[in-house]
């Protein structure tokens, strides 16, 4: 085919369109359709906005939303920890490469694996409490996964532990790409480490920090299923203490025979995720500009 035939670009994007249409296209249409139907089996009668009405009127749904929002609290923590660690690594102290290797390790471990390990460590009669007792820190001995007041915080701790690793690598790579002469100039001016970090380095990392924040926000909204599933005993427990939107959808679908309800919540979740992606796009565009 001739290079400048008008068909060429379409041939290039055709496989993409086919793949996405197959996996997402039909599915998303059915999803929207289901959200307006009372589905039994694989279909059901139209019921207008009833599913949305029911969901928005249910305390459990709002509890799930609030838990997702609480998970957003991990984001500033992750940003700060990752920033400090990246800046420290950037100092290239002796042995920094080993630290870099180790600090990224959590991200390599699969969530279903690491959550099982952590769940064991945080058992009431488990190793973490054993160590705390041995150190005479009895006041810190908590029922990490068994108490309704603590369980969500334990999940958040696990999320921070793993997802911060991505932040470290992202931030470090941005630092490595900086113009060395700027930093050298600051160093020669006698600026302390903290001054250099605050006035020279961090201002140039705004883009990557924003990127990490948006990526993390999407994670907190729609990619925490595996964490919660393992730590919350498969049900978002104890009680409903670790129930999140993804698990709400999963339960509606798999466990309570309500595909229509699951579809309605999915549509809501998708809409909110889209907003976040849109925000990401704006961030990137401003970066490029």
């Amino acid at each position: 085919m001739r290079r400048n035939s008008p068909l060429v670009p379409y041939l290039f994007v055709l496989p993409l369109i086919c793949l996405l249409a197959f996996v997402f296209g039909l599915s998303l249409i059915r999803l929207v359709e289901f959200s307006f139907k009372q589905v039994r089996g694989i279909d059901g009668p139209w019921i207008g906005l009833r599913n949305y009405e029911l969901v928005l009127g249910q305390p459990l749904f709002w509890e799930s939303v609030i838990h997702n929002l609480k998970l957003f609290l991990t984001i500033p923590v992750m940003v700060m920890v990752a920033l400090v660690l990246a800046l420290l690594l950037y100092e290239r102290l002796p042995g920094w490469r080993i630290h870099r290797t180790i600090l990224f390790l959590p991200y390599i471990l699969a969530i279903p694996i690491i959550a099982v390990v952590m769940k064991e460590m945080f058992q009431f009669s488990g190793p973490v409490n054993a160590v705390l007792t041995a150190l005479s820190l009895d006041f810190m001995v908590l029922d990490w996964i068994g108490s309704a007041d603590v369980a969500l915080w334990t999940v958040m701790g696990l999320i921070v532990w793993r997802e911060t690793a991505l932040g470290v690598i992202l931030f470090l790579s941005r630092l490595m790409a900086l113009d060395e002469s700027l930093i050298e100039a600051a160093r020669l001016d006698g600026a302390s480490w903290r001054q250099r970090a605050w006035h020279v380095l961090i201002p140039q990392m705004r883009g990557v920090i924003e990127f990490f924040v948006v990526i993390s926000a999407i994670t907190m909204l729609s990619a925490v299923f595996a964490y919660v599933y393992v730590i919350g005993g498969g049900r978002g427990g104890p009680g409903t203490a670790t129930m999140v939107i993804e698990l709400y959808i999963f339960n509606a679908l798999i466990r309570t025979s309500l595909p229509g309800i699951a579809a309605a919540v999915s549509v809501l979740l998708f809409a909110v995720s889209l907003l976040l992606i849109w925000a990401l796009f704006r961030v990137r565009r401003r970066e490029e500009a």
């Binding site: 060429v8 997402f24 729609s222 990619a223 993804e246 579809a263 979740l269 889209l274 992606i277």
Partner: peptide, 27 residues
Amino acid sequence: MEFRGRDAILTVSTALMAVPPVVLIVP
């Protein structure tokens, strides 16, 4: 390349990043 629908394809494809896998299970 320049072609009609280019931006639309990119926008749709990127938006699909936001689809939580769990919502695709039923269909």
